[in-house]
């Protein structure tokens, strides 16, 4: 820890920077991921073509996966360390515990984050590794333009969400994602030091809007499936 950068990064503010930068990457990722998912509404062909494009070059795919994994580890590890230090800094309240103005979102970052962590693990096992539903592996689709046989992501998603408990689980987790982001996105500007009293309110509003946009974007898929708007092909 003699290197100045490591030393400073290990300080309270250094950790906040790690938190914010990793959060920024994750927040950006979910946005792009959401746009990707929305292509389901463009039809089976569009979604599957998009999914195939993302996965066609293994080096890029794995590079990206490692990067995302690393960022998530940084985010979670820093979160754990912050929460632990903060518990140590403050004794258990003896009397009344009152909040004057802190939002629910800010107070539940640890909880919403932990839940999201659980969600991500499940989600990856569910749709990426497919251990929960090995049957997804056998779904194939023929891209008409590229003349290629690829994995049928569209069918997998629709089949997945037709199971009501899965949809319910996703929807609930997305609600917490919304909560996490509605504080996190404004908070990261504060942490990075790019906010002032004029922009504080605006950024708070932007963060809430961002959280809701992500929520609606993600949730629209399972909701559409349940409502029958995204039918299985054929």
């Amino acid at each position: 820890m003699s290197n100045p950068c490591c030393r400073h990064l290990n300080s309270s503010i250094g950790k906040k920077y790690l938190m914010a930068l990793s959060g920024l990457v994750l927040a950006g990722f979910v946005f792009v991921h959401m746009l990707g998912n929305l292509q389901a509404f463009l039809g089976q062909e569009a979604l599957n073509a998009y999914a195939y494009k993302l996965q066609s070059i293994p080096a890029v795919l794995w590079g990206f996966r490692f990067f995302l994994l690393a960022v998530t580890i940084v985010h979670v590890a820093t979160a754990i360390s912050l929460v632990r230090e903060n518990r140590a800094a403050r004794p258990k309240p003896n009397g009344e515990e009152k909040f004057v103005q802190a939002t629910v979102g800010s107070r539940s970052m640890g909880f919403s984050g932990a839940l999201l962590f659980g969600f991500i693990v499940f989600h990856v096992l569910h749709y990426t590794v497919k251990v929960t539903h090995p049957g997804y592996k056998d779904m194939h689709y023929h891209l008409s333009k590229a003349h290629k046989d690829v994995h049928d992501v569209y069918t997998m998603i629709v089949t997945g969400f037709q199971e009501q408990w899965i949809s319910a689980l996703y929807i609930v987790c997305m609600a917490f994602l919304c909560l996490h982001l509605s504080h996190g996105v404004s908070s990261l500007f504060q942490t990075l030091g790019i906010r002032n009293e004029t922009w504080r309110k605006r950024l708070d509003a932007i963060a809430v809007a961002y959280g809701w946009a992500i929520f609606i974007g993600f949730v629209s898929v399972p909701v559409a499936v349940l409502a029958g708007a995204l039918p299985l092909p054929g």
Binding site: S12, N86, S106
Partner: peptide, 10 residues
């Protein structure tokens, strides 16, 4: 021994 800010604003 102070804790880390988590932007509560209290």
């Amino acid at each position: 021994g102070f804790g880390n800010c988590r932007n509560y604003g209290e």
